[in-house]
Amino acid sequence: MRIEPLHTAANVAAVVAWGAILGALYMVFQYVPMERTMGNVQRIFYFHVPSAMVSFLAFFICFLASVAYLITRRRGLDIAAAAAAEIGVVFCSVVLITGPIWAKPIWGIWWTWDARLTTTLVLWLIYVAYLMLRAYLPEGARRANLAAVVGILGFLDVPIVYMSIRWWRTQHPAPVIMGGKGSGLAPDMALTFRVCMVAILCLFVALLLRRIVVELLQDEVDHLYREADVAPPERG
């Protein structure tokens, strides 16, 4: 695969993403009025929820790329799966950290083991393990195979985790949460939310492209080392 066109695409996507993020920040901090009951802290919602959606999307892409890799054996798909998983973990971390910051003043607690929160945490753990596995395996077709298997297994697990936690939660009464979020956002809030959704999506695409470019560069460096018959320097 040629790097240059992707490099250009990543640069364009980055410019678009920064524009969209600036627009989204204007909407969040200037345009949209303060939420009446939750106050200013509610403003994190506009980045928190899109980040959650994008991280799920990223893990889904990792799953699809893993399946496609095992069928076609194209290196590009392995790269896509790895990049998607890594960026999914980045957004998932954003979700897991901004969540409690929002939850503490609103619910009075940092964390509750409800189905959504727990599933997100388990998802994060699965994909961190996926990235760790990749880091511990020598680069090559074998790593791609093994990682793809974990990518598939991990994603299949998600609905079962969600179901099991929901079941578990009905056994133990949890604190009542989520009064009205989503259920009837005011029009200007809904608009702000949509703008933020688009902005975070643009950011995701830009990061994904950049990550793929870097991985292709790594491939090229490895290839050049082989060609020059020089042992690559040891990296941790």
Partner: peptide, 22 residues
């Protein structure tokens, strides 16, 4: 309200820290 603002900046601060770190 000022504490709320603290939390607000803490929230977006976390976002920026992770993004720029990555």
């Amino acid at each position: 309200p000022d504490k709320f603002l603290d939390f607000l900046f803490a929230g977006y601060g976390a976002f920026w820290t992770i993004l720029f770190g990555y």
